[in-house]
């Protein structure tokens, strides 16, 4: 199949970007990123600058890949990362617009590559349990209700790709932050530090320049791991408790 790609090209964060059009010959068995590989091989061989895009595991778990394809982060399929999207969902002659995740919290590095270190800083602000190696008691010493453990796992499945921010009309990072808060808050081991963790993580999230959540739920719809906005409600509750009720 022959496709026309409209790809955002931007040399670096201080240079304005623009769209450029490319033709690429793909086939339906390729993954979306393999289609971009083909384009890049062509570009390199013809002496042009290849399109920079981030990727690593190519099996939907590392969270490195992520571009906006025709207006949707990670493309049209639900519960799928960009690397898991295959070309059989496109038709011969299609024009596909590919843009980076756009948010002030994710400055563009080059083309489709953005800097998501703001997510690291949010985790560093409190997305952990303060336990040193060797301090742990026996793993079975604290029973955890299966439902809680499962809900915690649902939240912990977040791959930190940033699609929630990219999808949100306000570029809010609430789903990401709430997923980590929920993962830890739902476990007795993590509950101990809830109030401090929530306060610090929200503070950092606000500092990073993300927008405010207005409950459009675009994040949940585009999240490749289908993480629920229930987590955002939980974050809100914990934040009220932390801000208004803690000593």
């Amino acid at each position: 199949m022959k496709l026309t790609l409209k790809i955002w090209r931007q040399k670096n964060n201080s240079t304005p970007g623009k769209f450029e059009s490319y033709q690429v010959q793909a086939n339906e068995h390729m993954s979306f990123l393999e289609m971009l590989d083909v384009l890049n091989q062509d570009l390199i061989e013809s002496g042009k600058d290849p399109v920079a895009f981030e990727h690593d595991c190519r099996e939907g778990i590392c969270g490195a890949c992520g571009v906006v394809i025709d207006g949707q982060p990670h493309g049209l399929l639900k519960g799928t990362t960009t690397c898991q999207l295959h070309m059989r969902f496109f038709k011969d002659g299609d024009t596909v617009t590919i843009e980076p995740f756009r948010a002030q919290g994710f400055p563009v590095i080059k083309d489709l590559v953005v800097d998501r270190s703001s997510f690291d800083r949010i985790i560093q602000a409190g997305g952990f349990i303060s336990v040193n190696t060797g301090q742990a008691q026996d793993g079975n010493a604290i029973p955890v209700e299966k439902e809680d453990s499962d809900a915690s796992m649902d939240a912990a499945a977040c791959i930190g790709c940033g699609a929630c921010v990219a999808a949100c009309p306000n570029a809010s990072a609430m789903l990401f932050t709430s997923a980590k808060v929920s993962h830890l808050a739902l476990l007795p081991q993590g509950e101990v530090e809830n109030e401090k963790r929530v306060a610090n993580m929200v503070k950092q999230m606000d500092l990073e320049g993300f927008g405010n959540c207005s409950n459009t739920y675009a994040c949940e719809a585009e999240c490749p791991k289908e993480i629920s906005v229930e987590n955002i409600a939980r974050l809100n509750r914990l934040y009220f408790k932390s801000s208004l009720a803690s000593e």
Binding site: V68, G71, E99, Q104, P169
Partner: peptide, 16 residues
């Protein structure tokens, strides 16, 4: 919120 995305999408989906 507008400031949180200074550079707008060329195509934005309203599907969800």
């Amino acid at each position: 919120n507008r400031g949180a995305r200074a550079s707008r999408y060329a195509v934005s989906s309203t599907k969800h």
